[in-house]
Design a protein around this nucleic acid. Structure first.
Lengths: 107, 107
DNA sequence: TCAATCAATAGCCAACGAGGTATTGATTGT
DNA sequence: ACAATCAATACCTCGTTGGCTATTGATTGA
């Protein structure tokens, strides 16, 4: 239900956008032009995706003259990690309960 | 680029679908009827979402008479966990490189 | 056997979103 | 001052998809 998770999932669901984020994680700060060169889509589309990534908190931008440098903000992935941990936790609890039940049945 | 991650992100991007998966994680196995009762959408929609979750490997179904029981398959989240770890790893490496660079500059 | 219930499928529609091109704004270099 | 470059915005189009209702198939109970 938490809205931050929703934003993250929706933002990372698009392959082009996720690829951009991955490149920024792998290769560090890059300009829009550099990203566009290998993105497979036009520059305006890249800018749009970067804008969405920025809104989601997944990237930062830094202006230097007429070019804009983008970099990954890895901390923004925390809610996603938390979510998976939470799901795993629920599963674990239910598994423990089952284990307890089986133990009690065993006696 | 790995396609399994793509399927997971796309599947979990929808709030209704993610809510269904969350309920199955929290509360364990449930019938379609039970899920529909609190899903806020119609039964056919729930069935459709469950079908998509099943295709993604996130849930299993078990038929019992005229009702179908669904349960979460938590292992299917592994690629997602791997992906976040990978992204974190890239970031860490680049941070280490920066650290090294700063150390060398310091001498 | 017939009615009722449960889940899945079919068919439809409206909204969203990712892509494109054209343009604007801003900065650099000549 | 002017041309060129870089990134963002505006605007449009088309495909995808999430929602609905109606229906079908299957199973249970009377």
């Amino acid at each position: 239900m938490s809205d931050t998770q929703d934003v993250l999932f929706r933002t990372l669901a698009d392959p082009t956008r996720r690829a951009l984020f991955e490149r920024l994680c792998r290769e560090g700060e890059k300009t829009v032009g550099a990203l566009t060169a290998r993105a497979g889509v036009s520059q305006p589309v890249v800018s749009k995706h970067l804008g969405i990534l920025k809104q989601a908190g997944l990237v930062r931008d830094r202006h230097e003259g007429r070019q804009t440098h983008y970099s990954a903000q890895l901390g923004a992935l925390a809610p996603l990690v938390d979510w998976t941990r939470e799901m795993a936790g629920f599963w674990q609890n239910r598994f423990d309960q089952l284990e307890d039940l089986l133990k009690r049945m065993d006696q």
